[in-house]
Computed example of a mutant assay.
Amino acid sequence: MAVVEITVIPLGTESTSLSKYVAGCLQVLQQAGDIKYQLTPMGTVIEGELTKVLELVRQMHEQPFMAGAQRVNTIIRIDDRRDKQATMEGKVRSVEAKLVTPGGTV
């Protein structure tokens, strides 16, 4: 299973607000149904089988064009681990387990 971070940046839009384009990209993931994802302030993290996720990334990249953007810059980071199952939560838990504050807690 892959964990993929994607940031879709529409350029050449009528406004500096991009939330309608982000919503269009998230609709692609909602319609996919069996994909786990998390919206963050600067992008979206997707978890799933790499071939399916890459197809969804392509669809997300197309969304701003369909909404009138003249140019789209898409940034993708892929963590595709083959030695064991990787999940978004597992990656976060692994870091939190190693993060100890002076009081001994996370």
Rank of each mutant, 00 (worst) to 15 (best):
M1K: 09
M1T: 09
V3G: 04
E5N: 10
I6S: 00
T7N: 13
T7F: 13
V8I: 15
V8C: 13
I9V: 15
L11R: 05
T13P: 03
E14I: 14
S15V: 14
S15K: 09
L18P: 01
S19C: 10
V22R: 10
A23S: 12
G24R: 03
C25M: 08
C25E: 01
C25S: 02
Q27S: 07
L29D: 03
A32Y: 00
G33K: 06
K36V: 13
Y37R: 09
Q38N: 05
Q38H: 12
L39Q: 14
L39M: 10
M42T: 03
T44C: 11
T44Y: 11
V45I: 15
V45F: 12
V45Y: 05
I46K: 03
G48A: 02
L50V: 12
L50Y: 02
T51N: 10
K52L: 07
L54H: 03
L56D: 02
L56Q: 03
L56N: 01
V57Q: 08
Q59R: 00
H61M: 02
A67C: 08
A67M: 15
G68A: 06
G68W: 03
Q70F: 00
Q70R: 06
Q70D: 03
R71N: 12
V72C: 12
V72M: 04
N73G: 11
N73K: 06
T74R: 05
I76F: 11
I76V: 15
I76S: 07
I76D: 02
R77K: 09
I78M: 01
D79N: 15
D80M: 05
R81P: 14
R82M: 13
R82L: 14
R82I: 14
D83I: 15
Q85Y: 14
Q85S: 14
A86L: 15
M88K: 09
M88A: 01
E89T: 12
G90D: 01
K91G: 00
S94K: 11
S94P: 00
L99T: 15
L99N: 02
T101R: 15
P102L: 04
P102I: 04
G104N: 06
G104R: 03
G104V: 04
